[in-house]
């Protein structure tokens, strides 16, 4: 049985040490300890291996969709699938947290968050900000404590789809390539250094919500005004499973967008976008 951080429940890894090593490799700021099995505290998930494939058994966390018929063979697939359930697990352990589906980077003395939209360039921008020395809080999900506007770092490495776009600068490509962690030909975890990624449990106040829009034309990056309703609409993700009441989530998100700066950022070149963010929020 393995305990992760201060979570009360544990995970059993039965004949799959490689999967455990894979999980450990994507976590930062976590203590991961082997603990003695306790009969009154069953594992939240039991991983095992049969016929070369990982198997998932849990009463509280449903297996990832892809595991319905057959679990994956590769550690990368197993880790990536569990990564998403890990966030559901966090929601069970930290019941006072609601989760925003976004990327977050600390700029100046607070977080700039980028709500998730497909193909908006969020992951590339996050990596460009890391290259410039800003601390990444997450590239996917940011827990926030109820009643507060502080983001809570999960300490999970960002994951990029491969191949990387050819349009990226040589500096950016070198930065990413020199930090490749667990990967396959489709995706890679980026092994950000200690100063580049917030450890699990670090918190920072959210200062701004920036809605990203990637332009297909080579336009200069520019900010535009965004209202509370538009920001709220983008932040509401109906697919993100949570134990929390949607009324509570709505009220918290409304409070958040009422108290932070809101803007949209249209860009073509990720370097222009990063320049603007630095100028606007870098202090």
């Amino acid at each position: 049985m393995v305990r992760f951080g201060d979570y009360t429940s544990c995970i059993r890894f039965d004949t799959c040490d490689d999967l455990l090593a894979g999980f450990k490799s994507i976590l930062r700021g976590w203590t991961v300890d082997e603990v003695t099995h306790s009969a009154d505290a069953p594992p939240i998930i039991s991983f095992s291996r049969k016929d070369g494939r990982f198997r998932w058994k849990s009463k509280k966390l449903p297996h990832p969709d892809d595991w319905k018929r057959k679990g994956p063979r590769s550690v990368m697939d197993g880790v990536a699938d569990f990564h998403y359930r890990f966030l559901d697990w966090h929601a069970l352990e930290y019941r006072s947290h609601f989760c925003l589906h976004c990327a977050a980077v600390e700029v100046g003395d607070g977080l700039i968050i980028f709500p998730s939209v497909k193909k908006a360039g969020k992951s590339t921008l996050v990596m460009e900000m890391a290259l410039r020395g800003y601390k990444v809080y997450c590239d996917d999900v940011l827990p926030v404590e109820l009643g507060k506007t502080d983001g809570f770092a999960m300490g999970i490495l960002p994951r990029l789809r491969l191949p990387l776009p050819k349009s990226l600068s040589p500096d950016h490509l070198e930065f990413v390539r020199s930090r490749m962690g667990l990967s396959d030909k489709y995706a890679a975890y980026i092994n950000l250094r200690a100063s580049e990624l917030a450890d699990f449990g670090e918190t920072s106040p959210i200062h701004a919500v920036v809605l990203l829009g990637r332009s297909g034309d080579p336009v200069p990056a520019r900010f535009s005004d965004v209202g509370k309703a538009e920001a709220l609409a983008r932040m509401i993700d109906q697919n993100y499973a949570t134990h929390m009441s949607p009324t509570v989530i709505f009220d918290e998100m409304l409070k958040l967008v009422s108290n932070v700066e809101l803007t949209s950022l249209e860009f073509f070149d990720v370097r222009d976008a990063a320049d603007l963010i630095e100028q606007a929020f870098g202090g």
Binding site: A229, Q238, T242, P246
Partner: peptide, 14 residues
């Protein structure tokens, strides 16, 4: 701001 959000408490959706 004039836009409507509907909370579905039972279905867990907004």
């Amino acid at each position: 701001e004039g836009q409507i959000f509907l909370i579905d408490e039972e279905g867990g959706k907004i």
